[in-house]
């Protein structure tokens, strides 16, 4: 019996995985590859499934907050891989970029290893988060510049 590796509290690991999987899903393959050039080499992996492209039906809510309805589909590419130590990584990313999905799946597997995690977080995930924060802040600033500032005239006498 192999002893279970010391994993963080599962809800904590789940929250961390949710975060890095989301960031990897919103980055393109070239960006991820560029970040990986600064990181320790990824471990070898075998493909369990994909990368393959399919559809996810996106749903809205009637009235914005009521019962769900089918809005329309979107293309999604998924990939599942296994590392030599048996760790399985998954990726589901919007769009049709097979390379992005595979890199994201390998990173998901490697990031689950507490020994590999700090270096990969520092080289790949945190820079992606910072770039995304800068992008969204810029967009929010542009939106803010188009906010209408109503002013009420001082009492007219």
């Amino acid at each position: 019996m192999v002893p279970e590796p010391a994993l963080p509290d599962p809800p904590l690991l789940q929250a961390m995985r949710r975060r890095w999987m989301g960031l990897l899903a919103r980055a393109d393959a070239a960006t991820i590859a560029a970040r990986l050039a600064e990181a320790p080499a990824l471990p070898p992996h075998i493909r369990l499934r994909g990368p393959e492209t399919g559809l996810v039906m996106t749903r809205g809510r009637q009235g914005g907050d009521g019962a769900p309805f089918n809005l329309g589909e979107m293309t999604v590419t998924r990939c599942s891989v296994r590392l030599e130590d048996g760790t399985v990584g998954h990726a589901y990313v919007a769009g049709r970029d097979a390379r992005q999905a595979e890199l994201a799946a390998v990173l998901d597997a490697a990031l689950q290893d507490p020994d590999r995690r700090p270096a990969l977080l520092a080289a790949v995930i945190e820079p992606l988060a910072a770039a995304e924060a800068a992008r969204t802040a810029r967009e929010a600033a542009k939106a803010a510049a188009t906010r209408v500032e109503f002013f009420t005239m001082a009492t007219m006498r």
């Binding site: 399919g54 996106t58 809510r61 929010a140």
Partner: peptide, 23 residues
């Protein structure tokens, strides 16, 4: 084209009140 692709499933309903507003 979409008829050539498999369906992986359905998303959670979009939460438009959490939208990053552009307009």
């Amino acid at each position: 084209y979409r008829t050539t692709l498999p369906r992986f499933g359905a998303s959670l309903p979009l939460e438009t009140d959490a939208m990053r507003i552009r307009r």
